[in-house]
Design a protein around this nucleic acid. Structure first.
Lengths: 239, 239
DNA sequence: TGCCATGTGTGCGGTAACGAACATTATTCA
DNA sequence: TGAATAATGTTCGTTACCGCACACATGGCA
């Protein structure tokens, strides 16, 4: 069984008072999340909810013709499965592990039970939901208006924020799927970034050399989402 | 003061038990919503929440360079201001009346007070939130993968569903702003639809002649959103 | 060691949408 | 009735991205 202190590794669990986490602890287990793990498929009833720790989970939509696009990413700042709290038992999105690591799993029933008690968990989950909505909305406009290059920068920054390292294990093919663009488009944009000395990469490994330049070259979307996420996270739990 | 029966005109209010609506009634007032009315601006604390009746409200993101894109539309199936319920006091989006009509207004404080009582209102609002999330996410992928023509069809269908008529009061310029594309692009797509006899239009008035053809020519996004919205709406209030 | 799957680079024709400029037609209002 | 404004139509060069095809390089594995 996990120890209380371990729950600190996820921002939502960390923000809960000890009274609540103590109650939840017996129902939480650590699981490993290898790259590509599918946490849920569109339309499928979701049994459990997941709290990423050092992993990143992508929520993506897959279209009839197979084309896809990521609509948001979840790291240890959030949880996967908010639609459980929203009352729908499923979503139209696919949740897939984009960066391997571990996560905590809790049964959906336990989760909504605690959510329904109207404790801090509810406050935190709703607030996180708003952050998620912001990210989705910004992704929508970004898809409309920004270049592949800008989006690549945004995407790298979002990933960096959710890992505590400057190294990403990511093929360009995978990134292309997330952004919903051609792999060649990513190759070209990444190549330029490498020439400029902002990143260096090598067969599925990306190392970020100059985070600031990356932020400069990114579209505003990254910062908008980050600001809103920070704002929501820094709000007092009771209000 | 409004009468109880009038609240039936908004799906969320209509689904509430009499006990709750009776309590809310004194705090709800009818307001007129002329085209272009801004219900809230990004970052601005929102005082009130709005329940559209025969009007349509667009949530849109405006970028630094002035470019914009609609991320979702709200009609009498929903409400404007869910971020109030989510606990953030503002959003990054702009809410603007896209089709004139009336709406009901309630003070945000009363709203969250009732929301916090954990009544049916909470269930309904959360469920609606999920529908909204679905719409945003689908908009994101639609922006990525579909043509202006397909998106125009989708957008017209979304609007028709929220009005009980086949006539829209809409300039192509306005539609272009919503879709985040050039006005000329809309002109071209609309021109084709008119030649095909699917719609006919005339200086700010669009009349839909053949809804079925419109649905055929639209991308799948419309139907996905509609199905999910219907699914969520038809769920029992208690669960 | 050599093979092969995987990841990346590159070039090419095609196209949807862009930005800009301008023409044309309705509608409003002085 | 005429002028101004608003809405739509049309054209043109440009661009970002697509789909496809294929070359090349690397690293794991037989």
């Amino acid at each position: 069984m996990l120890k209380l202190v371990q729950l600190q590794r996820n921002a939502i669990l960390a923000a809960l008072p000890a009274e609540v986490t103590t109650r939840l602890l017996p129902h939480i287990e650590e699981i490993s999340l290898p790259l590509g793990t599918v946490l849920y498929e569109p339309g499928q009833t979701m049994r459990d909810v997941y709290f990423p720790i050092d992993s990143i989970v992508s929520l993506l939509y897959v279209m009839e013709n197979g084309a896809s696009a990521e609509i948001s990413v979840v790291g240890n700042e959030g949880l996967v499965g908010i639609s459980r709290a929203m009352g729908g038992q499923s979503t139209s999105s696919r949740a897939v592990v984009q960066s391997a690591g571990i996560g905590y799993r809790m049964s959906g029933r336990r989760f909504i039970e605690e959510f329904g008690r109207h404790t801090d968990l509810m406050t935190l989950v709703l607030r996180y939901t708003q952050a998620l909505i912001t990210q989705m909305a910004q992704t929508a406009v970004c898809n409309r208006h920004h270049t592949i290059s800008q989006q690549l920068c945004r995407w790298l920054l979002l990933s960096l924020d959710r890992l505590n390292t400057d190294d990403l294990i990511m093929t360009q093919e995978l990134i292309a799927n997330m952004l919903g663009v051609r792999r060649e488009g990513v190759t070209e944009a990444a190549g330029r970034l490498q020439k400029m000395g902002v990143i260096e990469y090598h067969r599925g490994h990306i190392h970020v050399l100059d985070r600031d330049r990356l932020a400069e070259m990114s579209c505003e979307c990254y910062q908008v989402v980050k600001n809103e996420t920070d704002r929501l996270q820094s709000m007092p739990t009771h209000c």
